[in-house]
Simulated assay, not measured.
Amino acid sequence: MDIDTKVEDRPVFVTGADGFVGSHLVDRLVDAGADVHVFVRATSSGELNNIVHQSKEVTVHRGDLRDSHSVREALSSLQDYSDSLIFHLAAQAHVGESWDRPYETIETNVTGTLNLLQAVVDLDLDVAKIDTAGTSEEYGNIKDEMEEKHEFQEDGRVLLSERSPVNPTSIYATSKLAADFLTMNFHDGYGLPTVTTRMFNNYGPRQNPRYITGTIITQALENDVVKLGNLQPKRDMCHVSDGVRGHLHVALEGTPGEQYVYGHGENISMREWTNLILEVGSEHGYWNNPEIVQREDRYRPGDSDVEELLVGYEKLHEETGWEPEVSWREGVHETIDWYDKNREQWYGRVDWR
């Protein structure tokens, strides 16, 4: 699919545009010549971080998803356009922080999604597709009574697809599932051309250092010891560039009212992922074999951790041709290099000091 041709000069509205995935999506859209509108949280300084280099190439709308007025004002910029695309990526997206900030998580992820969808209806916008970004965390762990409804590989691993039952085990996952359902409600009730996407665990340059990949890399760059929590869970790690391509494929060729899941298509335990990162970093001279130490205070609360996530992305591949392109070793090297060269962007944000 020629993404550039399909978005060139096209109005595109991105929430969460200054975030991790959103900033990479903005880069891709600007490079393709789209008319990019970004919605970012208003702050006293008003500065952009991850997309400051694109500030002259995009139209910036500042506001807060939780404030319906600012959402409506920003979206009103699309009233003179037709065939617009909306990517809804803004969220409180950290699982651990959802327990510390439960109200903000619900207000941002649920009420914020409602504000966006309702504004599209109230403004009667001519929109080609609205993509709400969900999360693989919505699947949670398998309940015994639901086991027969799951798909399993020959080696016994559960394969998660659009057909799989959901079982959110954190406030974050529950809020994102609610946002998914709201998005589908507005398709069923108002005919909005909505889709939902569940990208499995993403990683790459610019990610908040409190996520697993970032915390491993930043600790290894600064210390001889890397302190981590539970390393048994398995995750399907998807490089951000593959994730951005997934969003674009769904928005441009996906069917309204449908859900699409995608990721690398292979999973890895967090201990193996840690070993891979430290091995790649040692090979390229970023550090010298740091020690791994597990600490209980870095575990998720109670039984809320998800044991295993592995995606089956056949639906997206069959409908659009999408498949992952970045290998783990290639993606990890690129990510380490970014953290190494951009310490000022993450040093004050880590949770291990």
Rank of each mutant, 00 (worst) to 15 (best):
T194L: 04
H317T: 11
I51V: 04
Y286T: 08
M237D: 10
A220R: 02
P324E: 11
R349W: 06
R295K: 12
S70K: 07
D131V: 15
Y299A: 00
I106G: 10
V121M: 04
L65N: 01
N141R: 12
T255Q: 15
R66V: 12
R66A: 10
R157K: 15
L117R: 04
V30M: 09
M146I: 07
D305H: 12
D31A: 14
E148K: 14
T215M: 07
L309P: 01
V14D: 05
L125I: 04
H239T: 07
L160Q: 13
H247D: 10
N109P: 01
E323T: 14
V52P: 00
R298N: 00
R245Q: 12
E266A: 14
A173I: 10
G16E: 02
A178S: 14
H88M: 11
V240F: 05
A32W: 06
L192R: 01
E107T: 15
C238G: 08
D35T: 14
T108R: 02
V36Q: 03
Y299P: 00
H37L: 11
D83L: 13
V226K: 02
G189C: 13
K315Q: 11
H247N: 11
V30I: 12
P11V: 11
R101C: 12
S76T: 13
D188P: 05
I212G: 01
T335K: 02
G22M: 06
E145S: 15
D67T: 06
V311D: 02
H333L: 15
Y339P: 02
T169H: 14
E308K: 09
T213P: 03
L248M: 09
D9L: 10
F39E: 05
Y260R: 05
P256C: 10
R206N: 00
G189N: 15
D303G: 08
N208H: 15
N185G: 10
I268T: 14
L116V: 13
A17W: 01
D144L: 12
Q92G: 05
R198I: 01
E272N: 15
V121N: 05
A179S: 09
G204Q: 08
E47I: 02
I292M: 03
R353C: 06
T255K: 15
T320R: 05
S164K: 04
V158R: 15
R62C: 00
E318G: 01
K6W: 06
S164C: 06
D224H: 12
R235L: 09
S164Q: 05
Y139G: 02
T135D: 06
N230E: 09
S98Q: 05
P301A: 00
H69D: 14
P205V: 06
V36K: 00
G348Y: 00
H61I: 04
G254M: 01
G285C: 06
R62S: 10
P290A: 11
V14N: 04
E283G: 07
D4H: 11
N202G: 14
T213R: 03
E145G: 07
D242C: 11
H264L: 08
T135P: 05
N208Q: 13
G257E: 04
M237S: 07
P102I: 08
